[in-house]
Nucleic acid binder design. Structure first.
Lengths: 207, 207
DNA sequence: ACCAGAGAGTGACACGGCGTCATGTTCCTC
DNA sequence: GAGGAACATGACGCCGTGTCACTCTCTGGT
């Protein structure tokens, strides 16, 4: 019998991971099928086949599972965003790459999951405020701040600007998904031009 | 005894109106104090002193009361928006007036109600999709379309543009409310310049 | 003035979801 | 292999939900 123990490969650990995953998968399906508002913790539990108490070993509430799913989305997008930053040498280039990447990501997630969204329903795609989503916001704001410092952009209110950019991307992104065919390039072009066009016109901060 | 009967002044009608109003007021308070997610229909009922069955004579669910409140907000804002349109003779003027009006409206509502919003919590301020909110969107889109027709703005995608403008106003508006002091003029200036600056750079549609 | 009936208010009730906890089971450590 | 820690289990008490049979009050017609 070998004493070789791969890190976190005890049977205990594995079922723990498996259970958590099972709950997340079930929750994703349930939210997609019933809609977030209607779905209950019991619906999720039933689909996993676990006992009700087990659920509460992993999440405190339906809300918390939802956030975990949302956080997961943001966490998957963040490295992409980071890559855009590292691959770009100008502010314009970064912005264009980031927006395009976001729209592609959105379109991809959308068709992977086939979210039926009952009219203005909550869905865990970057819309809710989670720690990971907060980091995405920070990253965008930082990118803008750096661009300002290095003269790649005028001295404007980076906080408002980041908020505005994310808001535009979210909203136009949503509308993009409702058009047929889904055209991420056109949407990205629209958003990028709006932002880059508006940037020079923005009120300047005192230095 | 006079036979003069003011329209809809039967006792029946009056209590009906009063009850509906009582429920809305109670709901507003409960949502503000507990947050939308946590509040229950029972909380609202208890505050009104009515019987539980009565609530369901007026609204089908907690969600429906919430929408009524949200709709109310949009309904109060719409005439303001309309007035901005009628008072302006240029597209720029309309946009500036509308954004400024929205931010003033937002600041006013915010302090009237003293909404404590438990971190990313839903609140019935123009965020949720209601019939009245849909009409606001339509109105903005129409204003843009008309401006395009009359040559006051380039031939761009009015749908994306309206979505983008509303998104920016919402998001920057929210951040504005979190700064001290609340400066609606500065926020409006930011948003207006961003949009008007970006407008000429937007991709044109085929005529 | 009166009455019949419509329309609204009432709250007990059956149902089901919620989160907990005492108990059982499984794996890990020594 | 024994002891114990960690986790799974599901019955349970609690509470919110939406309904419905019943009551009461207002109204319109005679």
């Amino acid at each position: 019998m070998s004493h070789v123990t791969v890190l976190t490969s005890g049977k205990r650990e594995q079922t723990k991971i498996a259970n958590r995953q099972a709950i997340l998968v079930a929750a994703r399906e349930v939210f997609a099928e019933l809609g977030y508002e209607v779905a209950t913790v019991r619906d999720i539990i039933r689909r996993t086949g676990l006992a009700s108490g087990t659920f509460y070993n992993y999440f405190r509430s339906r809300e918390e599972v939802f956030e975990a799913l949302a956080d997961d989305g943001a966490a998957r997008f963040r490295p992409i965003l980071r890559a855009c930053w590292e691959a770009s040498d100008t502010f314009d280039g970064y912005l264009r790459a980031a927006i395009q990447a976001y729209f592609d990501f959105l379109a991809d997630e959308h068709e992977t999951w086939q979210v039926r969204r009952p009219a203005g329903e909550k869905h865990p795609h970057m819309r809710i405020q989670t720690p990971e989503m907060e980091r995405v916001f920070e990253e965008v704001r930082e990118a803008f701040s750096k661009a300002i410092e290095h003269g790649g952009a005028p001295r404007v209110d980076a906080d408002y600007l980041a908020a505005a950019c994310i808001a535009i991307a979210r909203e136009v992104g949503d509308r993009m998904l409702e058009r047929r065919p889904v055209n991420t390039a056109a949407a990205a072009d629209f958003v990028v031009k709006l932002i880059l066009g508006g940037l020079p016109a923005l009120p300047r901060l005192a230095p």
